[in-house]
Amino acid sequence: METRKRAFLKVIILGDSGVGKTSLMNQYVNRRFSNEYKATIGADFLTRDVTVDNKLVTLQIWDTAGQERFASLGVAFYRGADCCVLVYDVTAPNTMDSLDAWRNEFLEQADPLHHDEFPFVVIGNKTDIQAKSEKNSVTQSWCSGKGNVSYFETSAKNGSRVEEAFQTVAQKALEQDTELTKEAYPSPIQLPQDNNKSHEGCSC
């Protein structure tokens, strides 16, 4: 019997404008790609159910407008996130340089319990434009220097590796969620069974 409620995992997508955050989310959730060039208005989320370790979990994926348009809302957006996806554009090295800033922004605003262990997934998007046989080594070393960070190169346009990337996101989010729950409820207090208690009469 499933005793726990289905896990509800919150995922935030961050990165510079135009790197493909909305497109990635749409490809993952709706398996659709639009060629329309459209800036994101504020922040919105889509959800998708996914199975991780034989458990059905619900991913709530928050897409945000890039470029600090709503910097003051960081706390409200980020709070309670279980995993953060940092997206850059493999055809624009500039956007890779921003990963640090976005990661710091997230950690500062969301302020998770253990900064160094908080799960991030870095996605280099737009491999359909610039496909390489090997993954970007600069990004890879950035990721390995940051602790709990996985790295994928995807194309939101043709769908390449999008599914795998978000499967990892779901996995990490679930681990984070489980970890938090464990820390919050260290061990259940065992109440001794009091068999001798008299149930007769009142206690006054």
């Binding site: 919150k10 709070r79 309670g80 938090l180 729950t181 820390e183 919050a184």
Partner: peptide, 11 residues
Amino acid sequence: QQSKDNNVNES
């Protein structure tokens, strides 16, 4: 989510 936050603070 809210209860999670509270728990985080507690721990």
